[in-house]
């Protein structure tokens, strides 16, 4: 029973890491697009859109930071699927 719980928890951890990775990659792609748009806007002298673009990039960075630093459901006592973690801590 305990082994089964551990396996489920392990699978959950892997899924969470995968989800985290996918989100980070998507955010990075969005930021890359924002950087390209910023360069385009600056050279075109569209100064009014520069600030919103930088703010959007900053928000993406904060989300990235929060995903890496603070979003850690796998390190809690309960796993993301609600199971109590075993004595593996």
């Amino acid at each position: 029973m305990e082994a089964e719980l551990k396996t489920t928890a392990k699978a959950g951890q892997v899924a969470v890491w995968q989800a985290r990775l996918i989100m980070l990659v998507m955010i990075n792609i969005a930021q890359l697009w924002i950087l390209a748009a910023t360069v385009d806007a600056a050279l075109a002298r569209h100064y009014s859109v520069l600030l919103p673009l930088v703010v959007a990039s900053g928000v993406c960075f904060l989300v990235t930071l929060s995903i890496i630093r603070w979003w850690r459901p796998t390190s809690r006592q309960k796993t993301s699927s609600g199971y109590l973690r075993g004595n593996d801590r």
Partner: peptide, 22 residues
């Protein structure tokens, strides 16, 4: 993940730097 975080920081500071310079 840490590498992606650093990339995100680099992209943000790149955009901010470019906008500031412009």
């Amino acid at each position: 993940c840490n590498f992606l975080g650093l990339t995100s920081a680099a992209l943000f500071f790149g955009a901010a730097g470019f906008a500031t310079k412009a």
